[in-house]
Computed example of a mutant assay.
Amino acid sequence: MNFIRRLFGASNHTTSEGARTDVISITHDTGESAPPPEPVIQAPEARDKLKHDQETPEDQGAKAPDLEDTSDAPVIMGTRPLPPLETFEPKPGDRIVYGQLSDVGMVRGNNQDSVLSLTFVSTSSDDLPECALFLVADGMGGHHDGEKASAMTARIVAQHVTQEIFMPLLAQQMDDPDRTPVADILRAAVQKANEAVGKYIPEGGTTVTCVVVLDELAYIAHVGDSRAYLLTKDGIEQITRDHSLVQRLIELDQLTPAEAAEHPQRNVLYRAIGQNENLDVDAVTRRLPPGSRLLLCSDGLWNMVPEEMIRSVVMDHGAPQDACHQLVHIANERGGPDNITVVLVQMPG
């Protein structure tokens, strides 16, 4: 068997609903010891069930994609240097403005997505910085397990951020040099959610993309294929990296982005909350230019609405909430096969 067969093992399971869930594991040989591989969860269209199970193709007679390795080097995700700070003096009262919307779509019977926004705004002689938390989680699992997993994740992340960021802001402790960095606080919040979902909702799982905006900086933590985009007058940029099989194959030059969009396994994830005790959480820090927009969304939006159309809608609507309604409307007009969730944050300027 070729490179991908060496990478993947697949097994088939039948859920209580009669739907099949394929579990695939991924490893990448770099010549160094590596942590245990994470499972890849293939859900049918509804992502019915998640289980941690790894078996070889010889055990189950399953076939992995017949692809060959074209790269011996591992994919390394580096930290992008922050762009130069733009000088901008906001007018008195200028604040972050945001909108959010979650919709069941045109096909699903329930909404397994969760969305949460918290803002901390103060005007006083203390001159406390503006701070906000925004989160999108796309639940996966049979019956109501997915919606429970995403709701629990949103709640636990918000609790941890409130305790470790919002409360220290009120206590004026954020400048303490011994404080845990914001990125590490977000990673810990997602890890706590992972532990809780694994313990209390073993048949469920969820993606999560969450961001803490502190003045002009955005601290993002991410697992799965919900996305964060940065939109400016110059264009739209995907900040997060999908933890999906097709994205991995793109990185290995086995698929083009156009081919990935039509790939039958485009919904396969190899990383999600609730699947492994040890979860690798991506963390990204970006500077948000004056007047820029930050958009978080589930795959129910980005699978149906092209990036340039997303940017056009956002830039054509002055109010973020109006843009959210229009984006969800377009996704539903195009079939709305999945739940659709979007948060749009607009910076002053």
Rank of each mutant, 00 (worst) to 15 (best):
Glu251Cys: 03
Thr87Gly: 14
Val223Asp: 01
Ile201His: 01
Thr285Ile: 15
Met77Gln: 13
Met152Arg: 13
Asp242Tyr: 01
Asn339Gln: 05
Gln173Pro: 08
Val190Glu: 01
Asp253Trp: 10
Ser122Arg: 14
Ala171Val: 07
Arg266Phe: 00
Glu259Ser: 07
Gly99His: 09
Glu333Gly: 07
Asn332Glu: 08
Pro129Leu: 09
Val121Pro: 08
Ala260Leu: 01
Pro177Asp: 02
Val23Leu: 13
Val23Thr: 12
Met140Asn: 00
Asp280Met: 12
Phe134Cys: 03
Leu82Phe: 03
Gln60Ala: 12
Pro84Asp: 08
Gly291Asn: 04
Pro35Phe: 08
Pro65Cys: 07
Leu301Glu: 01
Ile4Ser: 05
Ser11Ala: 14
Leu217Phe: 10
Ser102Pro: 06
Met347Glu: 01
Thr285Glu: 15
Pro57Arg: 04
Glu307Gln: 13
Arg6Leu: 11
Gln172Phe: 08
Pro264His: 01
Ala261Asn: 08
Leu128Ser: 01
Ser16Glu: 14
Val182Glu: 10
Glu237Arg: 11
Met315Glu: 15
Gly300Met: 09
Pro177Glu: 05
Leu269Asp: 00
Glu203Trp: 10
Arg187His: 05
Ala319Cys: 14
Pro320Cys: 01
Pro289His: 01
Val161Phe: 12
Ala154Leu: 06
Ser102Gly: 10
Ala188Thr: 09
Ser292Cys: 13
Tyr98Ile: 03
Pro44Thr: 08
Lys91Glu: 13
Ser124Lys: 03
Thr21Lys: 10
Asp338Lys: 07
Gly99Arg: 04
Val268Glu: 01
Ile185Asp: 02
Gln326Asp: 14
Asn267Thr: 07
Ile96Asp: 02
Ala64Glu: 04
Arg286Trp: 03
Gly291Cys: 06
Phe120Glu: 08
Asn194Lys: 06
His317Asn: 15
Thr87Lys: 15
Thr209Gln: 03
Leu296Ser: 00
Arg187Pro: 04
Arg155Gln: 14
Gln321Trp: 07
Arg80Val: 11
Lys233Tyr: 09
Ala319Ser: 13
Val212Ser: 07
Leu118Arg: 15
Ile26Phe: 12
Gly336Ala: 07
Ala46Thr: 13
Ser122Tyr: 12
Ala73Lys: 15
Asp225Met: 02
Val313Ser: 08
Gln100Ile: 10
Ala331Met: 07
Val211Ile: 09
